[in-house]
Design a protein around this nucleic acid. Structure first.
Lengths: 172, 172
DNA sequence: ATCAGACGGTTCTATCAACAGACCGTGACG
DNA sequence: CGTCACGGTCTGTTGATAGAACCGTCTGAT
């Protein structure tokens, strides 16, 4: 792969991880996939990313076996997170919590609720009532107090509706 | 800041976090700082990063208040992690654990031990004997079973010696 | 007093990747 | 049969990275 993506000399697992998810846009694409976005055009609309770059990132993620590309209708494809990608949730969540804490003065924009008990998970991702750290499968996303109404495109609206992670958005 | 670093339209805290630490090399620089590397030349030697890029990243990190630049001798500077950066440890650890799990077939290259009880923390960063998740201040780093002897430069050697996180490496 | 060397950068150029926008092939639907 | 949505590819321009050379300051040895 080209220069920008390898950290050849690093004998470190962080470098290995960054070779897969360290490029611009990659983690944002994955986050959207966790939230239920599955289609090329929806990703494109929601992320404001160039088509060429999105196509490249999706191909990389499929190569890395973090996304699976499947045909949901002749000629149309959707991208679904794989088990390998599910294991990335703690990292994704930790990063975004850092952002909430240090770069979001108005409070959280999204909150995550443990579906089996209804409790909001804390900054470490733990449900304090159950004393467990739910995986993405057991989480529901809801708009937080600082959810911004800035974006009004259909994908942003659909994402603001409370829903379980990993469940596809209603087709626009 | 230039195009490469902002995700302007994203009303998401993950995007905010990535604006700070999402660039190439940034997380690797921070990891080295957590491990006790503090000097420009040591970072340069250990990361095999271009001087120009390292200087730019360090300046960005100081601007973002993740590193503090201080003069340890006239004309010489060292970079020390700030409290804001300490909060990034869970994300850094989660990412590197994903790398260990999915991209390191031979087993862990480094292990982290809870200094107060001597137990190795698990993949979530939790010390199972104490039932706590120690912060970087309470962790010691040791080479794991798959620690690679590939690099023989002084910084790599020093990093392979067991030591507490955040404590400066012995001067070469 | 001087000289070498470590340190912490800056500057330069070639190359590579991202961006914006135009274009295109396929299948569904009216 | 024309049109639209979808899922891309192609192109020119701009910005970032790698790699190497160069530079100023301070230290310690001669």
């Amino acid at each position: 792969m080209a220069l920008g993506t390898d950290y050849a000399g690093q004998d470190c697992s962080l470098a290995r991880a960054l070779e897969v998810v360290g490029e611009r846009w990659t983690l944002l694409v994955l986050r959207d996939c966790f939230f239920g976005v599955r289609r090329f055009t929806d990703l494109r609309d929601h992320l404001d990313i160039s088509r060429a770059v999105l196509a490249a990132r999706l191909a990389d993620l499929v190569d890395a076996r973090l996304l699976e590309r499947r045909e949901y209708r002749p000629g149309r494809h959707e991208y679904v997170v794989t088990p390998d990608a599910l294991d990335l949730w703690p990292a994704l969540y930790a990063l975004s919590q850092w952002g909430e804490r240090h770069r979001a003065p108005d409070g959280p924009r999204r909150i995550f609720v443990h579906t089996t008990c209804g409790t909001t998970v804390d900054a470490t991702g733990t449900c304090r009532s159950c004393e467990v750290t739910p995986g993405p499968v057991d989480l529901e996303i809801r708009p937080g107090p600082a959810a911004s109404p800035r974006r009004e495109d259909p994908v942003s609206l659909a994402l603001r509706e409370p829903h379980r992670l990993l469940t596809p958005l209603p087709a626009a």
